[in-house]
Each structure stands twice: as C-alpha cells, then as structure tokens.
Write a protein that binds this DNA or RNA. Structure first.
Lengths: 210, 210
DNA sequence: GCTTTTTTGATAATTCATTCACATAATTGT
DNA sequence: ACAATTATGTGAATGAATTATCAAAAAAGC
C-alpha cells in the first residue's frame, strides 16, 4: 500500500529499524516480530507495522519478518543500496569529526572532499582527504559527482556556501549551522541544531526543578 | 495561559526564536512582530504566537514584542538564565568537537569534565579541561555538581556510562550514541542521531530520483 | 483435518499539532 | 475625538500522527 506523503518521523524510524536489523543480522537472527523490533528500538509494535505499511507488505502473518529480507527492503527504501558522494564544507572541529565519523562510511556515504577558507587548516589530512580551499568546491562537486553537501561553517557564511553548493548541482544539504537557509525548490535541506538539543534538555530540567 | 504539557516541537522553536532575538538584540532592534520573527526563522506567525501563548502574554496588540523583554522571557523559560555544569563522556572526535563547541559556552553550558577509557587520550587538554579516566566520573559528578551528561562513546558502552551517570545523580542526558538507553523515571533523556539525519536526506534523494 | 495460537495488515478512534479567522487592544493620523 | 491601521491572543477548524482494535492468514498442536 504505497502512499504519497511519508511522515518524516517514519523515515527517521526506518533508519533506526534498519540499524537494529543489521545488528540482528550480524547475530544470525533469522526471523523477528514487530513487537520485538519495537522493544529493541523503543517504540510501539503498531508503530513499526504502520511505518512499514507505507511501503508494502514485508511480513508473514503469524510469523513475523525475515531479518535479512526486511533489512534489504529498508536499505532500498532509504536509498542506502547505493553509494553517495558527500562534501563537507567547514573543516573546524565539527567538520573534522564528521569527516572521520565511521557511521557515514558504514552506510555508504563517502567523503569526497573537505573544504575550508582557513589557510591554517587547508592541506591537512582527514581520513584520506586533504582539506581543500573553498574556491575549489564548485569544480570538484562536478568532477567528483558530489550530490550531498554537509555544512559545518559558521552561520555568517552558511548561505554563501549553500549558494555555491546549489549552483554546482548538489541535490541535498545537511546543515549544521544555526541559520535558516534558502534553497530553491527541488533541493533537499535538513537542519541539525546541536544547541537546540541541549536547550530542550535545559528546558526539561528547569521545568522539573520548579 | 499556562498549559501543562508543552509540545517538544514548541520547545525546539523557542530555542530558535531566542537565538534569533539575541541576534536582533545585538543589532539594537527594539521591537518585532510575530510575523517578522516567523520570517526570520522560517515558520508561520500563528505558530510563533501559539508557541508563546503556552507561557503567557508577552506582546502588545498593534505593536509587537519588545526584543529584549521577549528574549529575557524565553531564556528564563528555557532554563538558560543560569549556568549548567556538563560532563562529556567519550573524548573521541565528536566528544572533542562538542567540548570545544562555542555554542554551548555562549548559552551557559560549562564543560566541567571530559572522560574516556582510552589511555592515549587521557591527559589531553581540551578547552581548559583535561581528559580524565572514566573511573573518576562518578566522584567528579558530585564534586563538580554536574547535572547534565553528554554521551559520545560507542554504542557498546553507552548503557554502562548511562548507569554511572544516573547512579551519580545526573538529571539529564544527551545521547549521541546509536543505542536505545534505559534511564529511570525522572531522568531526562534526549537522543541525537547523526546517521539518521543523513539517511533522511538519502531517502528524499532516492525518492526524488525515482 | 480441525482448533488454537500467533502475528500481520488495515481500519477506526484518538490524541496531538498546526493553521485559520477574528475579536480585542494599542497606536497613528486627521 | 474618531476613524483607520496594525498586530496580538485565542477558540475553532483542520490536518497529521499515533494508538487501539480486530479480521485474516499462517503455523503449530492434537
């Protein structure tokens, strides 16, 4: 039962399910029920089934899901059955951390380039990539077929970097800067705000203490 | 009009509003309307007003909001009118990046300790903090009155670290490891999953291409 | 082969979040 | 003083997401 609009929360959970299934696969688990998945990742079993139902019927009634099979379906749905070339713009602490992050590599995201304006950083080696000057970004996006840009520059230059990425044909942007970015229709944008996360905790703490 | 349960999405937006207001404050803007805030952060003006309405009436009809005043209210609501002592557990790339992250410091989060088990990292300096062995964590949480723990260790040791944090009296945990953590009722837990974010992009890219 | 058990997939009910629409209040201009 | 304008605060309407429920299908037990 394919539906047009998939809730973002569903997609996020699919990513989590898939990682959990990978773990089960490594443990040679053959079959699993929606309620076991649910327990493993901390949601309800109805939620698991509902999420999967957006994309088809993957289980067998009375039995459950074949781990390997479901894992394959999820990887395909998430677009992780292929390699993605990514560029990281901003080789500060966060950019470097992401460049070295194993989690990306494991799931098929290859860091093809890291860029910065800071002369002190340019030329450094980071996981088989040399930090290049920002001026080279536009050309290398095309040369290296980079489809995904990760922005870890300060807020003040985030929009400029975005414009370069978009103009050079990048199709998706993961933005770690605390700035609302404008992208044309068709470019996928996702914002990750580290400050917001800790401030939600602070809010909850403050509310608890009152 | 104070309400009991505040949507998490509202709290996240309040954090974003507050940062935008700080910027306006630095630019000496005196007054602002909900629709200007909305435009600045990329939401609807009704959303801004509704979010604020959970906590009281901060504006003047026909006029808008005093920037400084609203900023003050938001900082208080978010619990950012005080200092929070935090500990970072896991001094790998991500932990180090977070330790050096200015965004935390600016908003009143002081890194009081960084911990790791890796002998090669222990003793290193990171923004005025020496990386300490994990064994010291429990005692230092009490000594340094740390209320907030940031977990950047691998998934395999995340629950162990959580248990130490909880037992030592930490009240909130920001978890960057891809593991579902168990905490007792009363401890605030928030998960940040970097992989999930890039995989949502991958999903959208894959869906677009089809 | 029939009954019982299990677990999916789908629909309905419920809860939660966002948007709409407008009365109300403040200000400005005449 | 009064009309016109602006922009808040809020209840109602809408929309979205989650949870509950249960018929249908597969398997296991007898």
């Amino acid at each position: 039962m394919k539906a047009y609009k998939i809730p973002e929360a569903t997609v996020m959970r699919l990513s989590i399910y898939s990682r959990y299934l990978k773990q089960l696969l490594d443990e040679n688990v053959d079959t699993i029920s929606s309620s076991e998945i649910a327990k493993g990742v901390g949601v309800s079993s109805a939620q698991v089934r509902k999420d999967l139902a957006y994309f088809g019927e993957f289980g067998t009634r009375g039995v459950g899901y074949k781990v390997g099979e479901l894992y394959g379906h999820l990887m395909k749905i998430l677009g992780l059955d292929r390699k993605w070339n990514i560029a990281i713009i901003g080789a500060g602490k966060l950019g470097s951390a992401l460049a070295l992050y194993e989690g990306f590599k494991e799931r098929g995201f290859t860091v093809q380039g890291i860029y910065d304006v800071n002369a002190g950083i340019i030329g450094k080696e980071l996981s088989g990539c040399t930090v290049e000057p920002l001026a080279k970004l536009a050309n290398q996006i095309k040369e290296k077929q980079i489809t995904l840009g990760v922005i870890t520059v300060p807020a003040s230059s985030a929009q400029d970097v975005t414009d370069i990425l978009v103009k050079s044909g990048v199709e998706a942007i993961l933005n770690f800067s605390p700035r609302v970015l404008k992208v044309p229709y068709g470019v996928v944008l996702r914002n990750v705000d580290l400050s917001v996360n800790i401030e939600v905790l602070s809010f909850n703490l403050a509310a608890k203490i009152q």
